[in-house]
C-alpha cells in the first residue's frame, strides 16, 4: 500500500463526501420500511465510508473504526438482533414475535418498531464485519 501523504485533492474530496455517506446510510436504514433499503444496505454504505477514509488517508486515518472496535460492533450488532429475539421470548411470545413487546397499543406499529430494532443491529453487524475483513485483507498493521 502507498505510504506517502494523501494528496490534498483526494483528502478534501473525502472530507466533503463522508457526511453525505453517513446521512445517506441513516436514510437507507430508517426508510427501509417505505422504499428499497434496510439494514444490510445501510451497513454496507457505512462500511464503505470507513473503508474510503482508510484507503485515502492511509496510514493514519483521522476518522474511522479500529479493528478492535469493529469486532465489538460486529458482536454487539448481531447480539442486538438475537437479543430482541430473546426479549420477545422473555415477554412470553415466540422468538422474534415483536408484537408482544410493550412498546405501544397497535400491534402493527409495535412490529414496525421491532423491525427497526433488528435492522439497526444488522447495520452495526454488517458494518463491523466488512471493516474487519477489509482491515485484515489489507495487510499487516
Amino acid at each position: 500500500m502507498n505510504k506517502s501523504r494523501p494528496t490534498t485533492i483526494l483528502d478534501t474530496c473525502v472530507r466533503l463526501i463522508i457526511p453525505f455517506y453517513l446521512v445517506y446510510a441513516i436514510y437507507v436504514l430508517v426508510h427501509g420500511h417505505y422504499s428499497p433499503g434496510g439494514g444490510f444496505q445501510a451497513g454496507v454504505v457505512l462500511a464503505v465510508s470507513v473503508i474510503l477514509v482508510q484507503l485515502v488517508q492511509d496510514p493514519n486515518p483521522r476518522w474511522g473504526l479500529g479493528r478492535d472496535a469493529a469486532v465489538v460492533f460486529a458482536c454487539l450488532g448481531t447480539f442486538m438482533y438475537a437479543g430482541i429475539g430473546l426479549l420477545t421470548m422473555a415477554w412470553g411470545g415466540n422468538m422474534l414475535d415483536y408484537g408482544v413487546l410493550p412498546l405501544g397499543e397497535v400491534e402493527a406499529e409495535v412490529r414496525a418498531l421491532g423491525t427497526l430494532g433488528i435492522e439497526i443491529g444488522v447495520t452495526m453487524a454488517v458494518m463491523g464485519v466488512f471493516v474487519v475483513i477489509f482491515n485484515l485483507l489489507r495487510g499487516e498493521e
Binding site: V71, V72, C75, L76, F79, A82, G85, L86, M95
Partner: peptide
C-alpha cells in the same frame, strides 16, 4: 439459539 447467542458473545 442458545449456542448461537453464546457464539456472539464469546469473542468479547
Amino acid at each position: 439459539v442458545a449456542p448461537l447467542v453464546a457464539a456472539l458473545l464469546v469473542p468479547l
